[in-house]
Design a binder for these strands. Structure first.
Lengths: 186, 186
DNA sequence: CGCAACATGTAAGCGGTTACATGATTAC
DNA sequence: GTAATCATGTAACCGCTTACATGTTGCG
């Protein structure tokens, strides 16, 4: 399942432009499937080439023409086929946790800053989720409901864990830390 | 923070071969930073080229010579510098959650299978964590302790969420689903 | 008899990120 | 005045995955 397939799935819900899809990637999909314009536009072109979507060009003045994409019957079939994967992946790549593994080489200040920044980012997601929850309560599929709840449960656990155990990463003054003196003697 | 940097951090803990590092990536780092031989060996070569690690070749019979890598003072400095990032990323890419978003297009059987498989994968992590916890309780840094606990908290939340809300994805018989008849009429 | 563990590497390819290119309108 | 929104696209690059290539030892 790549960006192309997710675009196809989004279009199954209704016609949209690349710009519209970007907004979906930034809101309801943000916490588990990021994609930028550099992925989305080529994906839509490729889908159109394969006949899985059709494209209606809507002229505009002062802006590039809008390109409204619509899923085709062939596209819908392709989507069902892509969805027929019994083992979809769930991958995490965390510089944060990797950094934490080596936090004994950092100063307490570096650690505190890093934890605070991570918390801030998590709280941004929380705000996003609450916004999503209030918007368009109708016409939300059980899938979206599930994913939203899943995201919320995850970030609550993360926030709670950092609050409880963040301090265990700190060390006694002078005991450790990333200092020039240390690195020179080390 | 790429594979190279993580290798450097692992080597700061003690000399190791590429094969050894692979085992670390498969155990304590598995849940947040995957890497295969195709990334690790080139990373070690590059680190050696840059003088951040040294390499001792240990002849063997019947197998390729072991190459034992050791971090250099320059490598340690480079590690500290890489660790001085106030905002390390934490990225999730989940085909699973994307699929769930479109689960109204799947049959109940497909959904059940997918959920069961995900649960199985999560339980494998749980087993891995318990194994890690029992092994080498000494010489584990606070960082590793934190990351292990973080991983456990995450998967417990995931498992619990799927158990509680997995059923909400299922639909009435005949209501929905990925059938040929449907896709032909759709 | 086959599989897992040990041990290293290369090369093609893929998919996504980032930066670049353009430009009007509207809200603060 | 300056930022955000609207709106599309290309091209270089980067880093990781996958497949290939090779071969022994030991366990069940």
């Amino acid at each position: 399942m790549d960006v192309k397939t997710v675009c196809l799935g989004m279009l199954d819900h209704g016609p949209a432009t690349g710009y519209d899809l970007k907004k979906a990637f930034e809101s309801s999909f943000a916490h588990f499937f990021a994609a930028g314009f550099g992925s989305i536009y080529p994906a839509l072109s490729a889908l159109a080439d394969e006949g899985l979507v059709s494209c209606e060009t809507i002229p505009q003045e002062g802006k590039p023409d809008r390109k409204l994409y619509r899923i085709t019957p062939a596209g819908h079939d392709a989507l069902l086929e892509a969805l027929d994967n019994p083992n979809p992946s769930h991958k995490v790549r965390s510089e944060f946790l990797a950094t934490v593994c080596f936090s004994h080489l950092m100063t307490n200040e570096q650690i505190r800053t890093m934890l605070a920044n991570r918390k801030r980012e998590i709280e941004n997601y929380l705000a996003l989720f609450e916004e999503l929850e209030s918007a368009c309560t109708d016409e939300r599929t059980p899938g979206h409901e599930f994913v939203l709840g899943f995201g919320k449960a995850m970030i609550k656990t993360k926030l709670d864990y950092i609050d409880r155990f963040g301090d265990t990463l700190l060390h006694e003054e002078g005991e450790q830390g990333n200092t020039k003196a240390q690195s020179a003697t080390g």
